[in-house]
């Protein structure tokens, strides 16, 4: 049963379908072991934006207040999606990198473990 309703074949409307975002789509990002940002962020992005530009122009303003941000060696950063490793190509678009509407990605920065090495 997909819903307990008064009449049969009740269908709900998908409130957050991609078509409701005026050409944009949602992308969620979390920085592992950096709980100064208490939760993952939700971004409205254009699917044809390059992944590298997304990091520089969308993620940076969110995360750069953390002292670790400036120290990140981007060649060592690892990305994850649905519990599996994910290797984005910075020169390709979000769409080409397979990031569909409402994709959630996480990144880890080896050697950078937050304030005082405490995961903050």
């Amino acid at each position: 049963m997909t819903v307990n309703a008064l009449y049969p074949d009740y269908q709900g409307k998908v409130r957050d379908a991609e078509s409701n975002f005026h050409g944009g789509r949602l992308l969620y990002v979390a920085w592992n072991r950096h709980l100064m940002f208490t939760n993952p962020f939700a971004y409205l992005v254009q699917p044809d934006m390059k992944f590298g530009d997304f990091v520089k122009t969308v993620m940076a303003p969110s995360f750069e207040t953390h002292p670790d941000w400036a120290k990140i060696d981007w060649t060592k950063v690892t990305w994850h999606r649905k519990g599996e490793s994910f290797a984005p190509d910075c020169s390709k678009t979000l769409k080409e990198n397979g990031l569909a509407h409402k994709a959630a990605i996480q990144f880890s920065t080896p050697g950078l473990d937050g304030i005082g090495g405490l995961g903050i």
Partner: peptide
């Protein structure tokens, strides 16, 4: 009850 919660009005979205 997925048919119910796909309609959730999430403020961020």
């Amino acid at each position: 009850e997925p048919e119910k919660y796909i309609q959730a009005r999430l403020p961020t979205h």
